[in-house]
Design a protein around this nucleic acid. Structure first.
Lengths: 227, 227
DNA sequence: ACCCGTTTTTACGGTTTCTTTATGCGGGCG
DNA sequence: CGCCCGCATAAAGAAACCGTAAAAACGGGT
């Protein structure tokens, strides 16, 4: 997921569609529109969204048929429809929808549910593309790291190590794991590489490199980025 | 998560509470009840649930205060309350609630949302096997162990022994078994290693290391982690 | 061909962890 | 009663590991 999540709004009523998209854009999302099933599929293929807001009552196709497709594409799905039947909700949720909101809806609530859906999806995919620990923030998408306000320059290897640690923030990664991920399987025993890289990272990111709090060491096992 | 997910229903109105629990039990869940905040916390500690159905309007404490606690305990939270204010919903969802349903609710829809919450939770936790015995909890995935609130540092061997014991919690593991698992087949007779490691573990994890309750000794056979 | 930033090696002192040995306690048994 | 065995505890020497520094090799761009 990019720093600005991509949301696809599938809704046949243009007025409502625009309304939703405006609200999304105002809240920092990138919104794409689709008025029907075929259009939605095309948009899906063109650039896979992070979340789909799906109206079930489409003119050309039943939205329920699209649901599995979005799911397979890795998107979260929030069904947003006028159909209030309990059976419909159950069917949609059990088909993999992440939430179900009936029209008319409250915009603030919808946005909160959108956030919740994205949170769930993010957890599922396990990729936090922006991570902030203390005063350092890591933007995976931009491949940028900053401490406080200034940006910090990292060499490729340094960045790769940090990224791997950040992808599993809080978890203890073994030397072998990190080495495999960054240097490839053939170097999974060259712990010295790791030491040099970690030292460089600490020097650049830690407030007190002598007493590291960000990248911790578990003697004999590996390193861990605090969560 | 067990084969039958454990759900804690926090709701002060006995009639509604029973109704919900009955519905849950009929659908293959194990339901626990709590009429207030303190009761909920006790139930939480006794056996951490997979999901909490939380009514915000409790007599003794605002449900919103409990929400973070449940989240930290690894439970999914479905807020089920009479408060229909949009701001309330936004606050709850942004505090980590996985869904928000207002009373009166439809039972089938609630059950579908329960399923969705559990699905999300399972995805989030992935295969994070976490074991809690008394006040010590072992997170295999993170390779972390904590007693009470503080984290406890374990050396590699200490952790390996504990992990092996935890993997077969409640079962009696022979000296040879543990030694093979941790030190390798060539040291399966060096019981001294084991004693030193167990002692270190007890010192760090037991409330009274002189009277161990967590790691028990079966004279002449091996050790056992209580379940 | 040369320069500069990056990566790979190598070396060393200090610390953590592991192994090994020693001692004391208590229960079962002759 | 005294001996032996299994266990807990303590402590010390050995080994493994870490952080640090710096030199050597590398590689892309000018």
């Amino acid at each position: 997921m990019k720093s600005r999540p991509l949301i696809l709004v599938v809704e046949d009523e243009p007025a409502i569609r625009r309304l939703i998209c405006r609200a999304l854009e105002l809240n920092g999302y990138v919104a794409r529109e689709a008025g029907g099933a075929v259009e939605a599929l095309r948009a899906m293929r063109a650039s896979p969204p992070d979340l789909v807001l799906l109206d079930l009552g489409l003119p050309d196709r039943d939205g329920m048929e699209l649901l599995p497709l979005f799911r397979e594409g890795g998107a979260a799905v929030l069904v947003l429809t006028a159909r209030g039947e309990s059976a419909e909700k159950v069917a949609a949720l059990d088909s993999g929808a992440d939430d179900y909101v009936t029209k008319p809806f409250d915009t603030d609530e919808l946005l909160a549910r959108v956030r919740t859906c994205l949170r769930h999806r993010q957890a599922v995919l396990g990729q936090t593309d922006r991570l902030t620990v203390g005063d350092v923030s890591i933007d995976m998408d931009m491949r940028r790291v900053s401490k406080g306000l200034e940006e910090v320059h990292l060499t490729p290897k340094e960045y790769d190590v940090l990224a791997e640690l950040a992808r599993h923030a809080g978890r203890l990664l073994t030397h072998a794991h990190l080495l495999r991920a960054v240097w490839g399987p053939s170097h999974q025993d060259d712990v010295e590489y790791l030491r040099v890289a970690v030292r460089a990272l600490r020097r650049k990111l830690e407030s007190d490199p002598a007493a590291p709090v960000l990248i911790r060491n578990e003697p004999g096992v590996g390193y861990r980025l605090v969560a």
